[in-house]
């Protein structure tokens, strides 16, 4: 992601719509929301109880980070009345900007879940590092804050990846998810990911097109909210 997009001057924003800079922030927010949503599908049914508690925390921090990015995007949106919840729930599925990587339902496959978790955290660290250097102090500040919590995610992801390294199903899952994982990052950041995880670059599964799984996810995610439009919950 280019820094210019995050700090585009206010004049370039079109009246009454979400400005392009906020749209970039929405990519981050949507990735975290949808991945957090998918990870929370494990709450209550993780492989063992201690891990269940740990993985629920990860899902919660992801949703928490999504909320922080949505709040920032809402502040950068000129139209009043848009809040984090409206951005998270009240857009059409086609308006979401998350990468296909985070959309897939992986329950009850723990090998693929950990493969995605590990690849995501590793890629996210690269992205967050770049955002910490953003010219927009709000973006840089938030990235700094988020990075502190992500440290625990990375610890957890590395611990698991290390443990499952010799499992054929884990290695297969990493192979399978690799092109989508690359699609999380801007092209310029991908070499770094290849370097850290020790894999060759391949053609990325790019952000832009959604998988078929996003719409049913959205239907479920918004069903209560849509049942009484405009209500407070």
């Amino acid at each position: 992601m280019s820094e210019e997009d995050l700090i585009r001057p206010a004049g370039s924003r079109s009246e009454g719509s979400v400005p392009e800079s906020a749209q970039r922030i929405l990519e981050l927010a949507d990735d975290e929301l949808i991945l957090g949503w998918r990870n929370s599908e494990w709450t209550g049914i993780a492989p063992f109880l201690e891990e269940d508690v740990a993985f629920s925390s990860i899902a919660q921090t992801e949703i928490g980070h999504a909320r922080a990015w949505y709040e920032l995007a809402a502040r950068q949106t000129e139209r009043g009345g848009v809040d984090a919840d409206a951005l998270a729930f009240d857009r059409d599925p086609d308006e979401y900007r998350c990468a296909p990587f985070v959309e897939t339902r992986l329950v009850p496959d723990w090998a693929r879940t950990i493969a995605r978790h590990w690849l995501y955290e590793t890629a996210d660290a690269i992205r967050i590092e770049a955002l910490k250097a953003s010219g927009d102090p709000e973006v840089a500040g938030l990235a700094e804050k988020i990075d502190r919590e992500e440290t625990y995610h990375r610890m957890h992801a590395d611990m698991w990846a290390d443990r499952l390294r010799d499992e054929a199903r884990f290695r297969g899952a990493v192979d399978e998810l690799w092109p989508s994982a690359l699609g999380l990052l801007e092209p310029g950041q991908r070499d770094r990911l290849c370097e850290i995880v020790g894999r060759e670059p391949v053609e990325a599964n790019e952000r832009g097109e959604h998988t078929e799984e996003l719409r049913p996810l959205w239907e479920e995610m918004t069903m209560v909210r849509r049942s009484v439009p405009g209500a407070s919950w």
Partner: peptide, 20 residues
């Protein structure tokens, strides 16, 4: 008490169970 395969897991789980 908790069950974990090694100290690294135990540390993560202890944080979750007694520090979240």
């Amino acid at each position: 008490s908790l069950e974990a395969p090694n100290l690294a897991f135990a540390e993560t789980y202890a944080r979750e169970l007694y520090g979240r």
